[in-house]
Computed example of a mutant assay.
Amino acid sequence: MAATHDRPVSLSNRDDLDELVADHDRVLVEFHTEGCGKCKAMEPVLSAVARTTDAVVATMNPRDDPVLVDEYDVRSVPKLMLFVDGELVATREGEVPSVDEVQAFVSGEN
């Protein structure tokens, strides 16, 4: 299924996350926090990835649904999580990768 969004989708809770992952074949989720400089630097990277890959790209502050912090073992942000066919298949955290690096991560070439 081709991505239906050409920019990141903002999620507000676990139900939003579960629904998005269930509805799309490939989903890239970035966990971020308010005031995080690295997270802010990810915005143009994620926008470019949303426009150039088949993945649906989403962002979420896990503090909005604190259970997610433990469930996804969030130790630092930004944290990227790749879901394929509803399953979490890869994570990457605490750095600001380039557009090319995130595209490779999404396509499984990491």
Rank of each mutant, 00 (worst) to 15 (best):
15 D>K: 11
106 V>Q: 01
39 C>L: 07
1 M>C: 11
96 V>L: 07
88 L>I: 05
96 V>I: 09
60 M>C: 04
9 V>Q: 06
84 V>I: 09
110 N>F: 14
5 H>W: 14
93 E>P: 02
75 R>W: 06
62 P>C: 06
81 M>G: 02
62 P>F: 00
104 A>F: 02
33 T>K: 09
36 C>L: 04
94 G>H: 01
98 S>Q: 08
44 P>Q: 07
80 L>G: 03
64 D>S: 10
10 S>Q: 14
64 D>G: 07
29 V>W: 01
12 S>P: 05
72 Y>E: 08
101 E>W: 04
104 A>C: 09
17 L>F: 08
41 A>R: 12
75 R>S: 11
86 G>K: 10
85 D>Q: 07
18 D>S: 14
31 F>K: 00
3 A>L: 11
3 A>F: 03
34 E>W: 12
27 V>N: 01
46 L>Y: 07
53 T>C: 08
59 T>Y: 08
108 G>P: 03
70 D>K: 08
104 A>Y: 04
5 H>S: 14
49 V>P: 01
68 L>T: 02
98 S>C: 07
9 V>Y: 09
80 L>P: 05
85 D>G: 09
3 A>S: 15
32 H>D: 10
5 H>C: 12
1 M>W: 11
2 A>G: 10
28 L>I: 02
14 R>C: 10
101 E>Y: 03
81 M>N: 03
12 S>V: 11
27 V>S: 04
104 A>Q: 12
76 S>Y: 06
47 S>C: 11
72 Y>G: 03
88 L>D: 00
19 E>V: 15
80 L>E: 03
73 D>A: 15
2 A>L: 14
29 V>K: 00
16 D>I: 08
91 T>A: 10
32 H>E: 13
49 V>S: 03
107 S>F: 09
90 A>P: 04
28 L>Q: 04
16 D>Q: 06
15 D>M: 12
24 H>F: 02
52 T>H: 09
93 E>H: 09
89 V>T: 10
82 L>S: 06
82 L>D: 00
87 E>V: 07
61 N>I: 01
50 A>F: 03
13 N>A: 12
42 M>W: 10
36 C>A: 05
37 G>P: 01
90 A>F: 04
84 V>L: 10
12 S>G: 10
57 V>R: 05
60 M>V: 03
69 V>Y: 00
68 L>V: 04
25 D>T: 13
102 V>W: 00
15 D>S: 12
81 M>Y: 06
68 L>R: 01
4 T>N: 15
5 H>V: 13
9 V>W: 03
13 N>L: 10
70 D>L: 12
17 L>V: 11
90 A>L: 05
61 N>C: 03
86 G>V: 02
10 S>N: 13
32 H>A: 14
28 L>V: 03
82 L>N: 02
32 H>W: 14
100 D>A: 15
44 P>M: 08
34 E>S: 15
18 D>Q: 15
98 S>G: 09
55 A>T: 06
106 V>N: 00
26 R>N: 09
48 A>V: 05
19 E>H: 15
24 H>P: 05
110 N>W: 13
53 T>R: 07
35 G>H: 09
99 V>N: 06
21 V>M: 04
48 A>S: 12
77 V>S: 06
38 K>S: 11
67 V>T: 14
75 R>Q: 14
57 V>L: 07
55 A>H: 01
91 T>P: 01
62 P>M: 07
39 C>M: 07
102 V>Q: 00
31 F>C: 02
24 H>D: 09
30 E>C: 12
56 V>Q: 04
